[in-house]
C-alpha cells in the first residue's frame, strides 16, 4: 500500500507471505518496518490477523508481497491455517531474548512443513537484535559474515545483553530444516529489508501467483541455508534464488 516506486515495466507478480511466531516477538513491528519504515514502541497485539502489501523491486522483476501478519497468542493458533493457506512464503519469528519463542517457532516450522503449500519458502527470523550486545552498535553488514564473529557472543551475559538464544542455535536449526535465517531488529531496522529480499529471491518464478496453477516445482524448498546472509546468496545453495539485489 505504501507503494511509491515507479518502476519501469518489469514482470511483476505477487507473493503471499505469512508471519507466524509467539506473541509479542515483533511480527507486526517487522511488517511495519518493512512497509512503512516505521517503528512503534507500543504496538497493539494483532487480533486475528492484519493484512498489508508492499512491493519489492528486484533488478529483473517486481514482487508484490501480500503480507498476512497473524496473532501470536497460543489460542489463536487454530486460526493460522486460514492465513497460511496458499502462502508461498512464511516468516517464522522468534524473540532473541525469549527462549520459549524459539520452541514455538519450531512448532510453526513443523506445522508449515506439514500443512502449508509444498515448496513454501520459510525464513526463520530472530528479532529484537537491538537488545543484544553485538548489534546495537555494530554495523549490520559486519554481522553474519562469518560464523566466528557471531558465535562468540552467543552466550554472553554481560552488560545489558538480553540475548538468550545464540546465533549458532538459530542458524543450526535453520540449516537442519533448510530455512533462510536472519537476526533482525524491527526497532533499528537491521536486516529487515534483507529478510524480505531474500525471500523474494528464493521464490522460484514458477511459484509466483499467476503461475501458481502451472504445477510449479512443488516441494522445491530451496535450502538457502545458513547465516544472516544478505542478498548475495553465493554458493551452490542459491541455485534458485536469483542473485538479484533488491531495491525496495
Amino acid at each position: 500500500m505504501a507503494e511509491t516506486t515507479a518502476a519501469p515495466p518489469k514482470p511483476s507478480s505477487s507473493v503471499k507471505l505469512v508471519l507466524l511466531g509467539e506473541a509479542a516477538v515483533g511480527k507486526s513491528s517487522l511488517v511495519l518496518r518493512f512497509v512503512n519504515n516505521d517503528f512503534q514502541e507500543n504496538k497493539e497485539p494483532t487480533i486475528g490477523a492484519a493484512f498489508l502489501t508492499q512491493k519489492c523491486n528486484l533488478p529483473h522483476r517486481t514482487i508484490k508481497f501480500e503480507i498476512w501478519d497473524t496473532a501470536g497468542q497460543e489460542r489463536f493458533a487454530s486460526l493460522a491455517p486460514m492465513y497460511y493457506r496458499n502462502a508461498q512464503s512464511a516468516l517464522v519469528v522468534y524473540d532473541l531474548t525469549k527462549p520459549t519463542s524459539l520452541v514455538k517457532a519450531r512448532h510453526w516450522v513443523a506445522e508449515l512443513q506439514r500443512q502449508a503449500s509444498p515448496g513454501i519458502v520459510i525464513a526463520l527470523v530472530g528479532n529484537k537484535l537491538d537488545l543484544t550486545n553485538e548489534q546495537s552498535t555494530e554495523d549490520p553488514a559486519i554481522h553474519g559474515d562469518d560464523e566466528g564473529s557471531t558465535t562468540e557472543t552467543a552466550e554472553a551475559e554481560s552488560d545489558g545483553d538480553a540475548r538468550k538464544i545464540s546465533t549458532k542455535e538459530g542458524r543450526e536449526y535453520a540449516e537442519e530444516e533448510g530455512l533462510l535465517f536472519f537476526e533482525t531488529s524491527a526497532k533499528s531496522g537491521v536486516n529487515v529489508q534483507e529478510v524480505f529480499t531474500a525471500i523474494a529471491n528464493a521464490i522460484p518464478e514458477t511459484q509466483m501467483k499467476g503461475a501458481r496453477g502451472a504445477g510449479a516445482a512443488g516441494g522445491t524448498q530451496t535450502a538457502l541455508g545458513a547465516g544472516t546472509e544478505r542478498v548475495n546468496l553465493t554458493g551452490p545453495r542459491g541455485e534458485v534464488g536469483a542473485k538479484e539485489g533488491c531495491a525496495c
Binding site: A23, A24, Q40, E41, N42, K43, E44, P45, Q73
Partner: peptide, 11 residues
C-alpha cells in the same frame, strides 16, 4: 500474557 499486552491496548 496480560503484562505483555498492557502497553499495547488502545495506545
Amino acid at each position: 500474557e496480560i503484562e505483555k499486552d498492557l502497553n499495547r491496548s488502545l495506545p
